[in-house]
Design a protein around this nucleic acid. Structure first.
Lengths: 220, 220
DNA sequence: GACCTTCTCACCTACGTGTTAAGC
DNA sequence: TCGCTTAACACGTAGGTGAGAAGG
């Protein structure tokens, strides 16, 4: 908060803003296997009629990043931002069931910023419940939309920014979460990651059911 | 803007806020037949498994209320609200293909207020594109959720409020749209209204298809 | 019976999954 | 060939329609 100069009555001079990651255990399960996130191009998923290019369905993150925030001034206005920091200077390869650094990395400019759709809002709003970034979409091509462009086979660490708005001097606090590091991929490399995604993501239920059918066949 | 006392530099002393209804022609088509909107109870729609009472799907409005706003201060913060004013003191009946006033009206307290989900936001945000109230849900029972309770068989007129936030003296401007008047019903009375809803609402496509199948049979 | 409300249903829209085969 | 990316796909989640039968 060193950027903040002066204060009006009603504002605390010094507050300690805290941002805590939710669902740490789930994230840790993924991190132990080296997490992967799918990035797609313009990224339409299912399109029955190829003529209609309406739903630009790029891929979401799974797990979804959720944080709880405390220490804001309830009556001040903030925007909450998310971006992705290159976690190291490497390009990664999956060889013989292992991720190893290799190859020249792409020049890493900082990722675009995703603005939480409830921004801007009062400190009280952001603190009353966990903040969910379920709608952020990851892409490997820049294409104007609200998507975040990442380089495939590079490692990233999600980072949350809290920006105080509505006054000349903008105070920004940033927080990142090592548990949520992942390698961007165009297709899953580690099948244990695939299995863990299917196990926990409701949208992948079709494949969970398929696996259960196989298991019950084995029993019979 | 008579409620506003004093102003800081950068704020216009007097601005004329304008709110214009979008899709006037569609609304007028409905109004000419006397528009109806379905209100349901707690309002679950399709529930494959009756055990799971998750999606509390009360009914939306159709057409959807959309407005464009001008004359706000781009850098000030506003919330946009929607409520429903009793259009008259009557209870209405549909008799022989006609709506006629009759019966004792329910005591009319003003409806709850629906806060546009993008609230609060900058004037610039609200002015850059039409504002859509697609997610407001109408109900005939009060049940805590974000739904708006209306009395069935009473006539209402949607009204939009613009509230300047973040300062002690709150300026409120209100606008209503006679074209959007409707009678709340638990089931459609006028089948011409039903037909018009099916014709224009994509979620009713199933019934549009059914009608087309009938028509092509007639031709054969 | 007449009027109004409630519930269940089939059928859509809209879109988030990993799979698989084809491209490069 | 190999490594990586793309596109079409089947199959889910999630939920918005009016229809029609059942209640009150």
């Amino acid at each position: 908060s060193g950027l903040e100069v002066g204060s009006e009555k009603g504002d605390a001079l010094e507050r300690e803003i805290k941002v805590e990651l939710e669902e740490k255990e789930l994230w840790t399960n993924f991190k132990e296997l080296t997490n992967e996130m799918i990035v797609t191009k313009t990224g339409r998923g299912a399109t029955p009629n190829p003529q209609e290019r309406l739903g630009e369905t790029t891929r979401r993150m799974f797990p979804v990043l959720k944080v709880s925030i405390s220490g804001l001034d309830p009556n001040s206005m903030y925007s909450i931002l998310l971006d992705f920091v290159a976690a190291d200077g490497n390009r990664w390869k999956y060889v013989n069931g292992e991720w190893i650094p290799g190859g020249k990395p792409e020049p890493q400019s900082p990722s675009c910023v995703y603005i939480h759709p409830q921004s801007p809002n009062f400190g009280a709003h952001w603190m009353k419940a966990a903040i969910t970034f379920s709608k952020v979409k990851l892409s490997n091509k820049m294409n104007g939309g609200g998507q975040i462009m990442l380089n495939s086979l590079h490692k990233y660490e999600p980072r949350v920014h809290i920006v105080k708005v509505g006054r000349p001097q903008k105070m920004i606090s940033s927080f990142s979460f090592p548990e949520t590091q992942f390698i961007a991929v165009t297709a899953y490399q580690n099948e244990e990651i695939t299995a863990l995604k299917i196990k926990h993501n409701p949208f992948a239920k079709a494949f969970l059911d398929a696996k259960e059918r196989c298991n019950s066949k084995d029993v019979l």
